[in-house]
Design a protein around this nucleic acid. Structure first.
Lengths: 232, 232
DNA sequence: GTCGGTAGTTGAACACGTTCAAGAAGGGCG
DNA sequence: CGCCCTTCTTGAACGTGTTCAACTACCGAC
């Protein structure tokens, strides 16, 4: 129990929060138990007990059990960004960049497939702050969209001028689609999801290239108008 | 309490189930309360009390609170089929048929938008029997796919021979996408969803027509191969 | 040092979904 | 009528997520 002997503000940490250690302790314990037992099988009492705090204390830092998921969400986004860096440094063509970033996302999530699947249920609820479309998720979401922005901007691909500003968000949406498939993917090692990425990327690549063609201009515009309308 | 005076096997009903009345009573009560208060706010105790039975009795007929949703699911499918009939009788062209059937689906769901939204959360969980992709849902799902089969088969559209067998399921998938959007649609009267349908149908229509073009044949095949791979 | 206020912590209590052992109701058969 | 078996029904009890009034630890101000 009595660890952290003198506290001494572990150097560098701003004086912001006294209970920051507790917060991280609870978060890390929860993540570990989620991975070990799954989301539903991990009780708040178990988290509290393993972390050595009272159950009410967990609720001081996290509004609900679901909010612990958001923590996972944010953490995964950061890991995804890091895992994508080598790809962004190495690749120049649009297709390989996109494929690399998508694969990197799945790489990061793979160890959590078992419990991440069940948690996406909560993310799907529109009213939940956990929804990837919700205001509460706007931080990680924007970071993810920016990542796909880098996929485009750093590439040699020539993109239709009207499509360009929408493309990062569209790619993020495609990524959400990949994750939705991944969540339901019961093939060993989620091989099918990898096939989905490798199959879909060339199509997206071709589609993006085609969007500049004179003859397809009306269709491109029609699609973009529709998307603009549907955004809130 | 003491209604249904003599029982007398209300003529026509097969002698199958003694408690069929109770089952329907619980189901109807649950649906009403879901609509009135929302899913989360409706407790099993409330359902039982309003139906005039014990709480355990509800569990005799429905494995869980979630299973009551499946009842709603099946019921909606039947209503959708009925609402689509006039469209299928009236329209001949592929586009209007598809648009009509999609609109009919949303028509049926609209009164339940408030609570249906929150329930789709459960449907999104892959391990749940409620998932539209699950084995338990295969009945309603196949019925829905067949409905889109009628959209195609009854139309004057000429469809690529390779695409033809996959098309009904693809259209159903698109319908699932529409519902996903509808669930998140907070515009008054879900107007945006209607715009989505009206905007997407011409695109789908055009895409289906284009699939027959010689030059696009490789792409069509590539897409179809991918889809075949990804199906389980 | 002590006072006061904020931040952090506690665990009992609540409402909920769900389970289950016990019983009641119904009907076929001798 | 009495028996037995299946179907149906009951409500108390369990484990869960969550709340909250009370308490403690810390820290700056005087």
């Amino acid at each position: 129990m009595t660890e952290q002997p003198a506290q001494t503000t572990t150097a560098g940490d701003p004086a912001t929060a006294r209970g920051e250690q507790t917060r991280q302790l609870i978060r890390d314990t929860a993540m570990r138990l989620f991975r070990e037992r799954g989301y539903a099988q991990t009780t708040m009492r178990a988290i509290a007990q393993e972390a050595g705090v009272a159950v009410g204390n967990a609720y001081y830092y996290f509004g609900s059990k679901d909010h612990l998921i958001q923590e996972f969400y944010a953490q995964s986004q950061v890991e995804h960004r890091a895992a994508a860096q080598p790809v962004l440094d190495r690749e120049e063509a649009f297709g390989p960049r996109l494929a690399g970033v998508l694969h990197a996302g799945i790489d990061v999530l793979t160890p959590s497939h078992g419990f991440a699947a069940t948690f996406f249920k909560t993310a799907a609820e529109p009213t939940s702050p956990l929804s990837p479309f919700s205001a509460e998720s706007s931080g990680p979401r924007q970071a993810a969209i920016d990542l796909f922005g880098e996929v485009v901007s750093g590439s040699t691909a020539k993109v239709d001028a009207e499509l360009r500003p929408q493309l990062p968000e569209l790619l993020w949406l495609a990524y959400m689609g990949v994750i939705l498939y991944w969540v339901h993917d019961r093939s060993p090692g989620q091989t099918k999801t990898r096939q989905l990425i490798d199959g879909a990327v060339p199509l997206i690549d071709r589609l993006v290239a085609l969007s500049r063609l004179r003859v397809l201009r009306p269709v491109t515009r029609q699609v973009l108008d529709l998307i603009r309308t549907l955004r809130h």
